[in-house]
């Protein structure tokens, strides 16, 4: 999988946001907020192909968590990022 970098993370009023521009009606635009840890993983993993194991490793390197917690959190992060169309493939 890969982070879709065509969607840019922007900073506004202390929030990290990604604007999902809809085609057609402008009012369909969605804004996704990334919290600090979601953004940190995003920055660590962008620009390359990665697997779920890479996400787990990035979590273990960055946070003081045990492997089983990291595995659950990594799966959750990937799930959320896919839901928001920020991860492709």
């Amino acid at each position: 999988m890969r982070i879709d970098e065509s969607k840019k993370v922007r900073h506004v009023s202390g929030e990290n946001i990604v604007i999902m521009q809809a085609d057609g009606a402008a009012d369909m635009t969605q804004v996704v907020a990334l919290n600090e840890s979601a953004l940190e993983l995003y920055n660590l993993l962008k620009g390359r192909e990665f697997t779920l194991d890479d996400v787990v490793r990035a979590m273990l390197d960055t946070y003081e968590v045990d492997e089983s917690t990291a595995r659950i959190d990594a799966a959750e992060w990937v799930f959320q990022m896919r839901e928001q169309h920020l991860i492709i493939n």
Binding site: S13, G14, E15, I17, I19, Q21, A26, T29, Q30, V31
Partner: peptide, 18 residues
């Protein structure tokens, strides 16, 4: 803040958002 952004953004000139 995030909701406020979402409230104002669609009211700004739409073409420029592309």
């Amino acid at each position: 803040a995030i909701e406020a952004f979402t409230a104002l953004q669609p009211s700004c000139p739409p073409a420029l958002a592309h």
